[in-house]
Design a binder for these strands. Structure first.
Lengths: 112, 112
DNA sequence: GTGGGTGCTTACCCTAGGGTGAGCAAGCAC
DNA sequence: GTGCTTGCTCACCCTAGGGTAAGCACCCAC
């Protein structure tokens, strides 16, 4: 537990958590991560349907950011109508695993 | 990994992560958690000094929310000038441990 | 030619959450 | 009386991030 960085790290990051929080900071990002983990390959429309409440604009921008962050991979097939498939990268998969204890914590407390 | 809840859970929570994200959702909450973990008992002013950039208003409101969420305990001594000490609850300590893998993930990626 | 399907983008609005600065109670030191 | 301390609160502003609705490209089916 004494392995985290102390203050003074570059760009104001105290420990790795801030870095992680920036990546999962969007309102729906953990849910996208979760869906892509459950089914390793999802199309845009599938994700929209699977995550009730999310709008196309936000889904698109979240996916773009997550792609830029290297946790999501986007594959576009040159077809009509267009087909685009999203999947987790290695890093995204590891991020999801790192979220597991947090999910457990939340699940325990919502039961209690 | 197949232990998380499926959609249809009460109040729109898909898995425990949403619950956890609500608790750590504030801009500075993970840092407060971290400081209280490093030193089990901190005064208000100490926290303000230890977390550069946070304002008194936000620190106070974050602490109040975290107390309401049951992750932080507030003890006020009837002295002048006033003395108030904050510490993690059992649940807060477990939350912090659950954040550890996430911190590790972030740390690895900021090195790379 | 009208409609449908897909994966977006663009323009706009709107609110929550955070930042700014001031004030306040209450006692002590000088 | 002036100032110092601590742990806040209150009033205000301001911006990022999200929600709303529309449009667009491309082809097919009818």
């Amino acid at each position: 537990m004494a392995t985290l960085n102390r203050p003074g790290a570059p760009d104001g990051h105290v420990c790795g958590i801030d870095t992680a929080m920036e990546v999962i900071g969007g309102k729906w990002k953990v849910l996208i991560l979760w869906e892509l983990h459950e089914h390793p390959c999802r199309r845009f429309g599938e994700l929209r349907r699977l995550i009730p409440g999310i709008t196309e604009k936000v889904l698109a921008s979240h996916l773009r950011e997550m792609e830029a962050d290297g946790v999501v991979r986007r594959v576009s097939y040159d077809e009509v109508p267009p087909r685009v498939e999203y999947s987790l990268t290695e890093d995204g998969t590891r991020l999801n695993k790192a979220l597991q204890p947090l999910a457990d914590w939340g699940r325990e407390r919502s039961i209690t």
